[in-house]
């Protein structure tokens, strides 16, 4: 019988070479598992079976509940979205899981990631405080740097640049054009502030604060990178498992069917063909 099996295998291989679309190869991987639906409404069910068989032996549950998977995994991805602002690069690179399956196992880790890997977030005044950095120049200026403005621009200006105004409302104004320059001083304001550095140490302090704030920024980036790396390393384990799943799934689609399976399928096809002589439906009740 081993000889028969070999002949069946050879026949199947020969047939598949002669007819590229022969048998299972035609409808199976390419059409996907949705195709059977057209045949009788069992497609979804057999699709689950086929998907399961793609990763586990028959009758065994594959890697826990796949049912709950997509949502959870996607939730995790969303959680990553929050981090997109930053470590996107490191993250995305480090997370092939986003490609699909793996997230399931990587998921727990991802959760852990944000929670554990990002205690920094909690201790990350920077992240939350970041907006301050963005809004800093303005807020900082307005709050601290511009108090001077309040205290200055008008009073000081008028005092210095427009004393003429008092005496020369319009003409003096025109005459005192240079003062308009001084008036447009909002630009030179920086200069004025520069001058005021000396007189108003607050401004200088603020700038220093900004610089400090920015100095922290690279530190944060570095920190995130560390976090990302550590996450990657932590994920390394799960990524391995994930990679196995992925490779299994990918392999399922691209992997060639073994000669043994081809022989089995040939036997099944023979039985199928034998159900109806000449390919017609003649299997009738007595």
């Amino acid at each position: 019988m081993a000889n028969l099996f070999n002949k069946i295998i050879n026949a199947a291989q020969a047939a598949s070479q002669q007819q590229p679309g022969y048998g299972y190869q035609q409808g199976y991987p390419q059409q996907g598992y949705g195709a059977p639906q057209q045949q009788g409404g069992f497609g979804g069910m057999i699709g689950n079976v086929l998907n399961q068989l793609g990763t586990t032996p028959a009758g065994q549950q594959p890697y826990g509940p796949q049912q709950g998977y997509p949502q959870q995994a996607y939730g995790a991805q969303q959680a990553y979205g929050a981090q997109q602002g930053y470590p996107q690069q490191g993250y995305q690179q480090g997370y092939p899981q986003q490609q699909g399956y793996p997230q399931q196992q990587a998921y727990g880790a991802q959760q852990g990631y944000q929670q554990q890997g990002y205690p920094q977030q909690q201790g990350y005044p920077q992240q939350q405080g970041y907006p301050q950095q963005q809004g800093y120049p303005q807020q900082g200026y307005q709050q601290q740097g511009y108090p001077q403005r309040q205290g200055y621009p008008q009073q000081g200006y008028q005092q210095q640049g427009y004393p003429q105004q008092q005496g020369y409302p319009q003409q003096g104004y025109q005459q005192g054009y240079p003062q308009q320059q001084g008036f447009n001083a909002p630009r030179p304001a920086s200069e004025r502030f520069g001058v005021k550095k000396g007189t108003l140490p607050q401004a200088g302090d603020q700038q220093q604060q900004q610089q400090q704030g920015y100095a922290q920024r690279p530190a944060q980036q570095g920190y995130q990178q560390q976090g990302a790396q550590s996450a990657t390393s932590r994920f390394g384990q799960k990524t391995d498992a994930t990679a196995q799943q992925t490779s299994a799934a990918a392999g399922t689609q691209s992997q060639q069917i073994s000669p043994e399976a081809q022989g089995v399928i040939s036997v099944i096809n023979m039985a199928s063909e034998s159900m109806t002589p000449g390919g017609t439906k003649s299997f009738k009740k007595d």
Binding site: I46, L50, L53, G54, A58, T252, I257, E260, A261, N269
Partner: peptide
């Protein structure tokens, strides 16, 4: 008894169609 997931899927698919 089949060696690979692809084998199991393909044979199951053949049985299903049968």
């Amino acid at each position: 008894s089949l060696p690979t997931p692809a084998d199991r899927q393909a044979v199951t698919w053949a049985l299903y169609r049968f």
